[in-house]
């Protein structure tokens, strides 16, 4: 094949679908959403400038306030637990002993089960009358828990089921652990350090950057991941306790056709995420000073 295009021009063409496609399908829609947050827009008539009216409406809406609170509680509880779980599982299952490849595959598997199927399976597990979870708890004398029909336990249930879909974090932690040179542990052993000391002095500081990077990505993924369970299992109920931000945005935009308010909700949520990230970074840099 004789090409008339220079090598570099060909490379640019290779990039075209990715760059232009991402612009059309992701970046332009995301920017347009930011713009429309300051307008009155119902997707049919052209947008009308509305200043901060959407934000005022949002903060005066009890539903939006409940949704924001549920989302923040979900993130503050679920993300630390997901990160701890992924790290503990990676520490336990990084071994090269027999069958451990199989154990690692088992831990990864729930992550790739289709979300709707996964939600329906958990709907059954949480069934207060016949579900396996209450049967299991019953063995320990724990009385029937309402799970998805009580606001407090519904929130706990959604967090609980999210703890099994940590495959991505698990794999990244495995790689992070593999990247720690064995020589560090060998010299710690020579110095008579216990496993516990070796973990806090060697493993944890070296894996921390990976944990941080993962938690930032997990904020976005875990939040987005609430949509399907909330939609399929509870449709935001009971008493809107599981109307997490993505479902709120969906309802505002596609049930009420209030694109402006939906976009404003999105901006507020994104600012909350940025604040959470800044908060985490602040805490972690504090640790560095004390050490």
């Amino acid at each position: 094949m004789h090409s008339r295009l220079s090598y570099k021009a060909q490379l640019r063409i290779f990039l075209l679908p990715y760059v232009v496609g991402s612009l059309i399908l992701v970046i332009i829609p995301a920017l347009a959403t930011v713009g429309v947050a300051f307008t009155e827009y119902n997707a049919i008539q052209p947008p009308q400038w509305a200043g901060l009216a959407n934000f005022v409406k949002l903060f005066n809406s009890p539903l939006a306030r409940i949704s924001l609170r549920s989302t923040v509680i979900f993130l503050l509880v679920a993300i630390p637990l997901r990160m701890t779980g992924a790290l503990l599982l990676a520490l336990l299952l990084q071994s090269r002993r027999r069958f451990f490849t199989f154990h690692r595959a088992a831990v990864y598997l729930p992550t790739i089960i289709p979300e709707v199927a996964y939600a329906i399976i958990w709907l059954w597990i949480f069934n207060p009358l016949y579900g396996p979870l209450n049967w299991f708890l019953g063995l320990f004398g724990v009385n029937d828990i309402a799970w998805l029909t009580d606001p407090a336990t519904a929130q706990a249930a959604i967090i609980f089921m999210s703890l099994f879909t940590i495959g991505e974090g698990f794999i990244v932690m495995l790689v992070g652990l593999q990247n720690i040179p064995l020589a560090y542990y060998e010299s710690a052993e020579v110095d008579g350090a216990t496993n516990w000391q070796a973990f806090w002095r060697i493993t944890f500081p070296l894996i921390l950057p990976w944990i941080l990077l993962l938690s930032f990505r997990d904020l976005i993924i875990a939040m987005q991941g609430t949509f399907t369970p909330a939609f399929v299992m509870t449709y935001g109920g009971p008493n809107y306790a599981t109307t997490y931000a993505p479902l709120l945005i969906y309802e505002l935009a596609f049930d009420f056709f209030d694109f402006g308010m939906a976009a404003a909700a999105l901006i507020v949520i994104y600012l909350v995420l940025v604040m959470l990230i800044a908060g985490v970074l602040n805490i972690v840099s504090g640790w560095g000073d004390n050490a």
Partner: peptide
């Protein structure tokens, strides 16, 4: 440049493209 572009893309929540991907 492309690395930064890709990481920024990763940080855009799915919900923020719903409204206008629908329009496009």
């Amino acid at each position: 440049r492309l690395l930064i572009f890709s990481v920024l893309l990763l940080m855009i929540p799915g919900a923020s493209v719903w409204l206008f991907r629908f329009q496009i």
